[in-house]
Nucleic acid binder design. Sequence first.
DNA 1: CAAATATTCAATAGAATTATTGAATACTAT
DNA 2: ATAGTATTCAATAATTCTATTGAATATTTG
Lengths: 216, 216
Amino acid sequence: MEKRLFKDAIYTAIAGMTKAFSNANRLEILDLLANGEKTVEEIATQTSMSVANASQHLQILKNARLVGARRQGTFIYYALSGLKAYAAWKALRDMALELEPDVQRTLDQYRLETNSYPGCHFDEIYQEPAAQLLDVRPVEEFAAGHLSNALSIPIQELSERLGELPRHKTIIAYCRGPFCTYADEAVALLKANGYKALRLEESYLDINLNEDQWKN
Amino acid sequence: MEKRLFKDAIYTAIAGMTKAFSNANRLEILDLLANGEKTVEEIATQTSMSVANASQHLQILKNARLVGARRQGTFIYYALSGLKAYAAWKALRDMALELEPDVQRTLDQYRLETNSYPGCHFDEIYQEPAAQLLDVRPVEEFAAGHLSNALSIPIQELSERLGELPRHKTIIAYCRGPFCTYADEAVALLKANGYKALRLEESYLDINLNEDQWKN
DNA sequence: CAAATATTCAATAGAATTATTGAATACTAT
DNA sequence: ATAGTATTCAATAATTCTATTGAATATTTG
């Protein structure tokens, strides 16, 4: 194989995969699927897309091997292909947060408006006995994987279940990741009810990905 | 700011950056610039593109903040924006190697044809006293950063400078990364001249990125 | 088998991307 | 200033991407 052909083949193949990342709707789908498998309709609802459009984007992600599909009854569940796919999305996300000021600025502004600014990071709180981790995602996502010692109270039920939370601890709320708004809503609600509360910037997978980093 | 608008703003902004990755020519440019700054013409030559086309792609990379430009005399030198940008490219690359079989297959086939298969990894050789690291990139790239204890002999000069290499050690050749062919050429040449030689899969930046991993 | 539901497909129009060409710009050196 | 060189810009046509619409397919349930 000639050198030029070799390089073209390699870079073209990789670009084929990276193209799947180059669309806002698909990034949102990936971010969602990182927290557990979902049906087309759930994806469409969560992302405010039409079902047909979501399906089309899912085909693109599937052809790029970023997501896989599993049929159960009349439903088809889509899920992220693996940790490497999440790692790539996270690397792109972290890069954008550092290199594109608009991203960080928009994030900060939203946090300020929702009274969840500033957030905290896992390494600051994971050994803190006066902190209580709270997972506000739907129970299926909690079941698919969660931070150890976290309580699970989905955001919709939080206002009715405040009594389950320890009064004397700082509540560290987390959700699907930095661009999910559930934890912001939770922190706002908790603060309004007299709790000390902070938003965790990382998601379960973010921590899981760097497991080694926290291990010892 | 409304929740939907917030998410659209964030994901759209990140997709804007990731779009810059979604083209084979631009990936090749990024891979090249990771090894040190280059002029438009050098980039065009190395990647077999027209100068105008390379310039156009560089504008896209610059607008996406993935590369920066520095003027010196009549030349403009382009360089990667930072380690986060390289980390994103590496994450995409590693993902493709794992999830897209064609990429690994093409790579293996090329290595077999050029007699540089199989390669070795840094963690296998970095403490091996019977190994001699050899950097076959141009001297400017060596100067911009290289593995410690590596010898620098650009690939074009290698055949005339074989005498500088220790006969009794295994020569570990490396270059710009897994898709660069310099190290393959070097290994083929070294083997043809009776040396024991292996191709290192990682580049200098790959090792530098995971510095902590090798530190202790 | 028929009805109901989840998902995909096909067609379309509008928008964005790409490589090429040749002209325009910006800087240096004389 | 003028000439020379590096780089960018502008215009173009071919291709690809995107959201929408409505029809088609596949599976379960009755």
